[in-house]
Nucleic acid binder design. Structure first.
Lengths: 236, 236
DNA sequence: TTGACACTTCGATACAGACCGAATTGTGCG
DNA sequence: CGCACAATTCGGTCTGTATCGAAGTGTCAA
């Protein structure tokens, strides 16, 4: 008699992969969107290089991460945005449980303010961006996922985003991603990534090394608020 | 020196809880929304009563399930909709990986068509309901979560939903929940639950025992399509 | 009260896998 | 070529925990 197997997706398999503290640390570190080397990840996870290598092998096999050899380094990154979303939802739930691993520190406020979620902007600024695009008619819900309106296309082009390039690549341009701190959607997809990259290029903001925090300059924040007003109509 | 603890929510803790096959089976069974007894869950998980009891104790401690004593039975249910959402996202990812535990059977088509997600309608019919409410102006996005318009309130009242009762209870009325088969949002929250219950009371549909499938009668489906048209404007 | 049943606790076993250090392979630099 | 460094493989230890059966607690119904 075959062992009683339940139908449905094999949720235990991947949950177990995430369920080990060392691997969870690795995945959390990769949520920054940056590709990290095996040694860096070993440091992040707090384990030796050999154990980290073992963990990375399992994560690869489970398709949670992908690798890219570069010389004698091997860079690892999350396998895709869907992985990032799983982690975000998990984080949101865990945070809601109040089960933070350390007491809330000064970093937490900054994380809620603006942080990188895999490769796009999350936190209060991420929500502001998302809401503003809707409020100004630059984006609308196309049933399932959001979609840029024609006006929206012009808007992001004006911001310096190479929109044609985004469309040409096969990745979905607009996706929503649930924010774990505020439980509200923000913009993911290749457009979300491109916008964050653009903000960095224009010097509005930069990622704080070794964290997921995004720090806006005061001038950058002014420009950002101008581009993505929260209360449209109050000015013109 | 304190062990290097990473900041952020303790994602490993709950992922490990879900990561055990027996516990994953238990949680999956509870996704039907029904409260099940410890022995039933032991059967679902394919383990002895004593091990199931141990697992349920851990799930309780981790706040993933809640219990309700009833005579000599002890009923277990998912602790909340947030737990259900975590599981849905996990299932969606696992399904996307193609890592189904059994080969896809005839049940899968029915599951995609209409199924219960925790306690509300998901699958193609769930998406239809969600989209139709928006298209007809009965629901709109209030920034974060959807909200019924005044017309929408009248509409659900006409369907026989005790809307005042929903509002009085402290639970959120409207929430969205991401569908794992179609990756599109559908309606959760107490309204989502109330609507499904209403469909069952009116005999439009019923849950297939021991599965998450919701089976519509042919007449029930006709009524459902009438109440929640997909292409509004084609008729009136 | 006694018996049937639901569930939990206990004790013991067994297996998986997390971990490290040392040795190995492979790459780049001088 | 040979050194330095990144990463993996290997052998071995050890803790954690999933698992069961049997015994214990509690609840309902005769």
């Amino acid at each position: 008699m075959v062992k009683a197997m339940k139908h449905g997706p094999d949720i235990a398999r991947i949950a177990a992969l995430i369920g080990d503290p060392a691997r969870a640390n690795i995945l959390t570190a990769l949520m920054s969107g940056k590709a990290l080397t095996a040694s860096e990840l070993a440091g992040e996870a707090g384990v030796s290089a050999s154990t980290a290598s073992s963990h990375l092998g399992r994560l690869l096999e489970g398709r949670l991460v992908k690798e890219a050899r570069q010389g004698r380094h091997k860079y690892f990154a999350l396998a895709g945005e869907d992985v990032a979303q799983v982690l975000e939802v998990l984080m949101g739930f865990a945070a809601g449980q109040g089960h933070l691993r350390t007491r809330t520190g000064p970093k937490d406020a900054q994380l809620r303010e603006a942080r990188v979620c895999y490769n796009h902007l999350a936190g209060a600024r991420g929500i502001q961006l998302y809401d503003s695009l809707f409020a100004r008619g630059f984006m609308m819900l196309d049933g399932d996922d959001p979609r840029l309106t024609e006006a929206g296309e012009g808007f992001v082009r004006d911001l310096g985003v190479d929109f044609d390039h985004l469309v040409k690549s096969r990745a979905p341009v607009c996706l929503t991603c649930l924010d774990w701190s505020a439980r509200r959607p923000h913009l993911a997809g290749s457009l979300g990534r491109a916008l964050l990259k653009r903000f960095e290029m224009m010097g509005w903001a930069h990622r704080v090394r070794d964290t997921r925090i995004i720090s806006f300059t005061s001038e950058g924040l002014r420009q950002f608020n101008m581009a993505f007003p929260v209360n449209p109509g109050s000015r013109g």
